[in-house]
Design a protein around this nucleic acid. Sequence first.
DNA 1: TGGTTCGCACCTAGGTGTTAACCT
DNA 2: AGGTTAACACCTAGGTGCGAACCA
Lengths: 564, 564
Amino acid sequence: MAEKRRATCSLSVKAHAFSVEALIGAHKRRKMEERGEGQREREGEGVEEERDASSPDDSPRQRHECSRETDTEPETARARDDDSPADCDCDVSLESPRRPLAAQKQAGTSLPVEETRVELQGSDLWKRFHEIGTEMIITKAGRRMFPAMRVKVSGLDPHLQYYVAMDIIPVDNKRYRYVYHSSKWMVAGNADSPVPPRVYIHPDSPASGETWMRQVVSFDKLKLTNNELDDQGHIILHSMHKYQPRVHIICKECADELSPVKPVPVGEGVKTFSFPETVFTTVTAYQNQQITRLKIDRNPFAKGFRDSGRNRMGLEALVESYAFWRPSLRTLTFEDIPGMAKQGGPGSHSLLSTGGSGASPAHTHLLSPSACSSPAFHLGASMSASEYTACSRSALTLSRYGGPLADTYGCLGSPGADPYPGPRSGSYSTANSEADGFGNPHATLPLQIPGMPSPQLQYLTGNAFSANQSQQGTYSGFRLHGPYGLYGYNFPTSPRLATSPEKVSSQGSFLGSSPSGTTTDRQIMSHGEGLHMLNGGQQNLFDSRTLGISGLANSSSQVSAHMV
Amino acid sequence: MAEKRRATCSLSVKAHAFSVEALIGAHKRRKMEERGEGQREREGEGVEEERDASSPDDSPRQRHECSRETDTEPETARARDDDSPADCDCDVSLESPRRPLAAQKQAGTSLPVEETRVELQGSDLWKRFHEIGTEMIITKAGRRMFPAMRVKVSGLDPHLQYYVAMDIIPVDNKRYRYVYHSSKWMVAGNADSPVPPRVYIHPDSPASGETWMRQVVSFDKLKLTNNELDDQGHIILHSMHKYQPRVHIICKECADELSPVKPVPVGEGVKTFSFPETVFTTVTAYQNQQITRLKIDRNPFAKGFRDSGRNRMGLEALVESYAFWRPSLRTLTFEDIPGMAKQGGPGSHSLLSTGGSGASPAHTHLLSPSACSSPAFHLGASMSASEYTACSRSALTLSRYGGPLADTYGCLGSPGADPYPGPRSGSYSTANSEADGFGNPHATLPLQIPGMPSPQLQYLTGNAFSANQSQQGTYSGFRLHGPYGLYGYNFPTSPRLATSPEKVSSQGSFLGSSPSGTTTDRQIMSHGEGLHMLNGGQQNLFDSRTLGISGLANSSSQVSAHMV
DNA sequence: TGGTTCGCACCTAGGTGTTAACCT
DNA sequence: AGGTTAACACCTAGGTGCGAACCA
């Protein structure tokens, strides 16, 4: 019934223009080849440390394989054996250090001044992209980023109110062009004229430090656009330019000047963080096929374009599916397979027919209805934990709202017209790896496990620049970038203040079924009937069942960024 | 390919047990019959004053017809000619009076003490259900209410912080049983033992009075369950009991005791509102077929069950479809129609095949990609409106966050253990009609049109009990209920504090494309490229194009409830 | 020719009533 | 026999890359 059918192969029309290098990744090639085709099949569904976060159905399956999915770190000298254990479930020990100070001190009372830190979640995935050369599609209507920025914040005053915002600044003043022949980005001239400044203010803003630190702060809903007249509040960028996303944490009293249509103010109370691996080049259509592949492999919404296991191409998948019927099918062609062009084989429920007909409804129902529904519970006020410990299900309660004590700071200043602050100052950042990129819910469990030692804790209790990873012997530890030589951020105080609405409504719907603890979702870990509450670091109680269900500890990146 | 096919008719298995009265609505029957079949066809897509709020595609179409869609008010003595103009587009004058005080005073500076008022949105739809006998399905997993509670709040101090919450209390201590023979609910004994108390705290809580008053406060995400062990934060109810939803507005300093698992506290600073037309009976499966019909007709998610125009039942629709081929088909039976059991007729594009095959993918693409995307824009701080008036698109900006001045009130008290407050006191309420129930986005536009007279303003500026409707001659005006004789609300201080998460993440996704101004969505009117901003009543500027696009003024209900 | 746009198939995510079991 | 449950078809809503068309 469908009027148009996709071509069977997901290569773009430009495929003829690729270099072999671009297609196979050359020296950056992952070592996947070593494996049997059967093993690689599942990679296509989104594997390794980074979980899709949206298809609860395949989570369990993948966790069983991740130990060998991450064993390859293209190009970099990073040790492979570090990632493997981290990727796997049940090794939650790596989780703990993410909240070193807050968790240690049994917070609840205000903490003394400590360094605000921001860890990038999903750093591993970001780096995978970064090694290839991250591209982000921008459209007139606005396009989400993939991976999305997700960070974990620590070192805030639990009782102060903060805004968290994100902006994206030019890395240089160049325009780029992708040369298919060499599979490289080349400078193609100077940058286009600046675009109207836009800031994505996290929809949970303002919130208490406790709230921010309790969850993974996700920027899933942020959208990029090339429409300079955009009135949806999306971040406006030029195509074929290089950009650097930044995260800002602004104390409420300093947020007077904060606006979605003005550059983020600078000064005390505004801390800015950036992560080098999140640099990307904007495009209106993907240039590097490797990027396309990785996006398709990892973004659940692009599942339809998977060959059912990327590197293990479609044919191999079919071989597997039909092995029972035709044991020696190794050399078969598409024509050999009945219905290949129109539908999947009878036994291949997980085999997406690339040219499949619409006549095959999804009655296979891959989604397990009992998968975690990740709800969020609201409390009217911050509560004494004792009120909720009586729970017969060993559940904790999430104090969603800042609570009475959380906003004794009222910003009394008027939101006066913000004088254009001028160029942003550069930002430093240190970054450790071993992270989940897209926000594996299970992986981002912000819980400190009582009684379980935190092997990396020692490395994280120092200041931001001392971050390191105990279990990653050969890993470089952290990267320290000098002042980011980012292109001047000068926008006209400008006429197009045409601020406009931005849809934040369906916050978290994307990751609704998995990324617990993201501030986007205001969710809490909850698997099936189990109830697991985050308690803002004030307690260390939690349902130990969570461990068995939601391991995959490594997805939290030990990235610590230092602000200016 | 589908393994199971729905029966051709959407009548339940209990259909054999209905009385004719139940099927045709007896004296409550709407006068639709008078119309030609062609006119009534589209009713099935969700018409009258209440708009689906989720299918932007048919909005325009419907507005062209609504003038005659709402002309019937079953049973009540309500004048029909009142509703007609109100339902139609362009008559925005009815919108204005909804925000009498805030809009009048050019708020922005604090208002003197005034009566807090709450208007039920979608009162018309609620009353339609109420007249039949509203039923709400409850499931173990939790079921949304339809219609959802949506209210408009006024009379708050714009600069104070408030929580808005909802709970649902028993109307009496009886258990009910539906008697198909008489199509009536009969008492079947005493109520079951009380269920654990649950309160749905609106996810936007706490927020400033300005924020609450600016938007329609929607309880879309609230879910009902019959699972007493629920850990999702859903409201727990008994099946076959009668309940009354209530809305509470709690000033932040009084919200210490507010908890999702404890009864709403009483006392100063807590104002409770209830609307008689929102009483419902809980069921696990619909009892009254008229309820089923109305639900299917109005709930966009049930569109698949529409016969393409409910009251203009399936057969009539087919007659129309096949009229061209068989002009005298009035007496035909299902068997007369080729393919009746499996697919719709050739010419009825809007006729959903009741038993249709899955082999027909949605390539018709009903959704217009250019339809309003209803985005929400965040502002880091409340801003001086002057900053945004320069917009070349005559757009205004929504000040999303309370802003600096919005929380000078910090509740310093600890969230101490809340002593069980005991039975709720009854609540009074006055209610005017003429409302949209489900929250037609366009209809809930909280804008005061400068220069446009507000015919009903005079009736709404008084205290809560003086509400009336100027244009509804014969309507009773308002209802004043004495202290609601609601069943005692005594729950054990109880053991199952098993509070638990509640998913609030995808707030507004349901109404994402239409109900602007709902606090659930934090959205702003925005049609296509147009940008319309709500400004919290601080300004009256807005893009006049909104009028032409988003009329349908009547959907805002002039309901004013009085709290205890 | 390189870059952009737009319709589309194909996904995820989740809200409907129906239906057939199932329970009491 | 009435009430409850879970799977399911069928929706809404919207996020993907593809590919043809378009543009400069």
